[in-house]
């Protein structure tokens, strides 16, 4: 399958590990990624705060540059993904906006017809275009005994995601298929604070501390993310949070494509291991020397026969 690829500015540098690992995993899966020629920054959340039409035009230039023979673009960065999707959807819903965007694009000899390109997050592409069985079939070295929790952040799943917007479950399923011990993180769709570190460090550290404090209780070997902003905030600012709150968190923050690559038997260096600030060496150590036996969970005690009856759980899902 062929996809237009929009790496975005973060993946060029600070999140190079995400770019490298995604490309390698895509290759194993037989996905052909065609990088959008001369793509530009999507404007993150900043341009939309200043001026609306240039913000849309900036994003639309990338959609216009998607080669004619491709009808979908994959973006690993959640902010990029959401901007591409939002621009396409709003242009389709508001023809007046579409014509103003196209009038602007014409100044650069470009044009974009809304609906031509479907914008997709890398996580959605992998979990929608491949079944869990397909993915498991590529696993050469299962991540046995490695305790992982997924952390999605916000716009990966909200407001236009493909999973539950509050309690997503896709990444957990993927990690399980890779053989890891999956721990559910109840704050997995909470916000990492985005660019708050640049606006008000105190508030940003509070938000990060809340996430790290609760993740630490799970005793995980690493948190697994699908967004460069989440990775950056939780990884690069973990030390700041520690010195601010007198804590001692050491939670490695990895990209889901890095752990996929590991299970697929790809060399950790090539997957960008070592680029994280909070070292993931512990994960690699466990990976190289998996525990002999999966630790057996003690069986839950059966209910006392004389206890009062419990209410029946709701059927058909509450939400």
């Amino acid at each position: 399958m062929r996809y237009a690829y929009y790496p975005g500015c973060s993946l060029e540098r600070n999140a190079a590990a995400y770019d490298e690992s995604f490309r390698l995993v895509a290759e194993v899966l037989g996905m052909e990624l065609v990088e959008i020629p001369d793509w530009n920054c999507c404007g993150a959340t900043e341009y939309f705060s200043l001026d609306l039409l240039p913000a849309y035009a900036l994003v639309a230039r990338n959609l216009a540059l998607v080669p004619e023979d491709l009808d979908q673009v994959v973006a690993p960065c959640s902010a990029c993904y959401y901007n591409l999707l939002k621009t396409d959807k709003n242009m389709a819903a508001y023809p007046k906006l579409a014509s103003a965007v196209n009038e602007s694009l014409a100044a650069g000899k470009l044009h974009y017809t809304p609906g031509r390109v479907r914008s997709r997050h890398a996580l959605d592409v992998i979990l929608e275009d491949f079944s869990l069985e397909d993915l498991a079939a590529h696993v050469e070295k299962p991540l046995r005994g490695i305790r992982l929790a997924a952390y999605y952040g916000c716009v990966t799943v909200r407001p236009m995601g493909h999973d539950d917007p509050e309690y997503p479950i896709r990444m957990e399923r993927l990690l399980k298929a890779l053989g890891a011990t999956v721990v559910e993180f109840s704050l997995r769709a909470n916000c990492c604070g985005g660019h708050m570190t640049q606006l008000d460090a105190e508030t940003a550290y509070e938000m990060l501390h809340y996430l790290l404090r609760n993740a630490a209780k799970l005793d995980v070997d690493a948190l697994v993310t699908a967004c460069p902003m989440c990775q950056l905030n939780l990884d690069a600012y973990q030390g700041q949070v520690n010195s601010h709150f007198g804590t001692d968190f050491h939670i490695p923050i990895l990209y889901f494509t890095q752990v996929m690559g590991l299970a697929f038997g790809i060399d950790p260096d090539a997957l960008g291991f070592g680029q994280e600030i909070v070292s993931a060496e512990r994960v690699l150590e466990k990976f190289r020397n998996p525990p002999e036996e999966e630790e057996k969970k003690p069986r839950r005690k059966r209910r006392d026969k004389d206890a009062l009856p419990m209410p029946e759980p709701l059927s058909g899902g509450g939400r």
Binding site: N14, N40, A57, R61, E103, A106, G108
Partner: peptide
Amino acid sequence: RGRMAFRPKRIRGIRPLRAILRKA
């Protein structure tokens, strides 16, 4: 760790991009 750039890369089509933004 090679994760920080001091200057972003410049795209080739910077002039047309500026023209687009100016128009917008």
